[in-house]
């Protein structure tokens, strides 16, 4: 590793003051540690956020849930506040890596690392969540949709820290789901997909609003816009599900890599989107 100063601030203000351009925040460290070992970062200061009180809280707030950036994947997966309404998020948090990883990895880290395959990103995008971002001057909100600029690149500016995720309350007649595709049980997603469906008040088979988000099939997690358009206002039958899967496949921009071919990924987008829509639909109807 390159030499660095280790700092463990006790307050957010202290942390923000330490976050100079050559400083890097340390949450779970499951990605950062290896980046440092491989000398993929120039940082000369590591700011360990884990000593800051309350940054890992998961709490109900007006109109939804606020998840501290330092909340562990394991806590997220176990939270009844989350499981009660955000099925997609619960599922995604439960499949990230091994228990050892889920005991270290944080929601903030999973997002700020900006991996195209981050499992929590599509659920949050589908659920319409926003990131709360702070710097010495104050806080602002960035929709998770607009957080990712490219692999490893986010909309966070120098000196800014992701402090929390705000997930709006789940509307009535709505449900979400998360599906992913892997090589063996312990794996990074080859493709992941989250769906959010809200049904029409008067026509319980008709989609009022849909959001589909995909991971690992583009440089960033991605909203499948044409699939969403296809679903909006449609009576949800198998033909529509099929067509939405088709649209999502055309929205995806997968590549070939050592894990899977672009063709397989695109095919899996088709499959997972269909499955995600069906499960979200069932939940929206209160069936599962």
């Amino acid at each position: 590793m390159r030499p660095f100063h280790y700092r463990a601030p006790r307050s957010l203000d202290e942390a923000l003051a330490l976050l100079t351009p050559r400083a890097v925040p340390l949450a779970g460290g499951t990605d950062l540690f290896l980046k440092m070992e491989r000398r993929q970062t120039q940082a000369d200061t590591v700011v360990d956020l884990k000593r800051i009180p309350e940054l890992d809280r998961i709490e109900a707030v007006d109109g939804g849930v606020r998840i501290g950036a330092l909340a562990l994947m394991d806590s997220l997966g176990a939270s009844s506040l989350i499981a009660g309404q955000y099925e997609a998020l619960t599922r995604s948090a439960r499949v990230v890596g091994s228990i050892q990883t889920r005991n270290r990895a944080t929601l903030g880290g999973n997002l700020a690392n900006a991996s195209p395959a981050a499992d929590t990103a599509p659920p949050l995008m589908a659920l319409g969540a926003s990131a709360e971002v702070a710097d010495a001057g104050g806080t602002r909100q960035v929709p998770v949709d607009r957080l990712f600029l490219g692999p490893g690149r986010t909309a966070l500016r120098d000196g800014e820290l992701l402090t929390a995720i705000l997930v709006p309350a789940l509307p009535a007649r709505a449900g979400s789901s998360f599906h992913r595709c892997v090589r063996t049980a312990m794996d990074i997603a080859l493709v992941n997909c989250a769906a959010f469906i809200r049904l029409d008040e008067d026509h319980p088979d008709t989609v009022a609003e849909a959001r589909i988000a995909l991971g690992a099939v583009a440089p960033t997690p991605l909203r499948a816009a044409s699939a969403e358009t296809r679903l909006a206002g449609a009576r949800l039958d198998e033909d529509v599900v099929e067509a939405a899967g088709e649209c999502a496949a055309s929205d995806a921009r997968p590549i070939d890599d050592v894990r899977a071919s672009a063709d397989y990924r695109r095919e899996m987008v088709r499959v997972l989107t269909r499955r995600a829509i069906r499960s979200a639909f069932r939940r929206a109807r209160g069936e599962a």
């Binding site: 063996t184 312990m186 990074i188 894990r259």
Partner: peptide
């Protein structure tokens, strides 16, 4: 070799 690590060289875990 393009998968010289245990993330991409996939041996079975207890769940497989």
């Amino acid at each position: 070799m393009d998968n010289a690590n245990l993330l991409d060289y996939k041996i079975f875990s207890a769940l497989d």
